[in-house]
Write a protein that binds this DNA or RNA. Structure first.
Lengths: 144, 144
DNA sequence: TGCAAACCCCAGTGGAGAACCGGGGTATAC
DNA sequence: GTATACCCCGGTTCTCCACTGGGGTTTGCA
């Protein structure tokens, strides 16, 4: 029932990378971590996971960094969360799955899971960037 | 993103109690735990939580036990899960909630949470009992 | 009245995972 | 060739879950 802090960090990092996709200029871990104040050594691990999942690409050496592997509107939140949380393997380790009552409950659990996944699948990174921009627009109007 | 084993145990226990609500005869922990093979000392704690939440009533002393506090169709799965999981207090301890990106992500998290709660709210204990009976009916038909 | 059957409360344990931190290695631009 | 980045591996602390145990108290019944 909880979407962990881990997934949030990963999404924040990818949102940071999204505007830089067009230019092709990589962003360093330190820039992302200081911008969103995420512990940098921790962020490094998350980016490694995202890289292995094929969501970002890395460039080593001086003036290296990370950049999105594909367009921000081709990456859904489900792509991100599932690879970070690692719940694609149907690893539901429930203890008493043999009674008929347990099966009925598992069905409901599955329904909840599916609903959550559907929501995560309908949003892309670009959607979140747009939403953020819209919110900031509102803030400016209030400011004026 | 996970509905814990704890909630499943609690639901199993309440499903066990549901058919006995009409007669008013209490059911002992040992009976429930052996039926659904749940560790009995653990189940005891869960039933205590359910009692404090007003979902079950207990009867102490010899020939005591537990029984539902109200009709099985007046108890939703949300009632059960929320009191066991304790997520009514909006205790979302997220670390970086200040940037505008973080707010947008929190919105999505909230949307997922709401969807999950909606599903849990639409099912009652009685619904699950009926579903289980329907499944067993199918099993019998296959058997014949 | 005694006693056993049940619930009641509180406390601790083992394991798993989350959120970090650190040490060294390796590739690359300048 | 050197500084700057990523890369890999391991350890640490903390929290929570699932579970266990040791006492109590209440109650039905012989």
């Amino acid at each position: 029932m909880d979407l962990s802090c881990k997934s949030e960090y990963a999404l924040l990092a990818l949102l940071e990378l999204s505007p830089h996709y067009a230019s092709g200029e990589p962003l360093q871990i330190r820039q992302i971590s200081s911008q969103q104040n995420i512990p940098d050594r921790y962020l490094e691990q998350l980016l490694a996971t995202l890289r292995r999942a094929g969501l970002v690409k890395s460039q080593r050496g001086a003036r290296g960094g990370y950049l999105l592997a594909r367009d921000p509107w081709k990456i859904s939140l489900y792509d991100v969360v599932s690879c970070i949380e690692g719940f694609d393997t149907q690893a539901d380790a429930t203890k008493a799955p043999d009674t008929s009552e347990a099966v009925v409950i598992q069905d409901v659990w599955g329904e909840v899971r599916q609903a959550a996944e559907a929501i995560l699948q309908k949003y892309t990174l670009q959607d979140l960037v747009d939403k953020r921009n819209a919110k900031q627009q509102v803030d400016i109007m209030y400011y004026i």
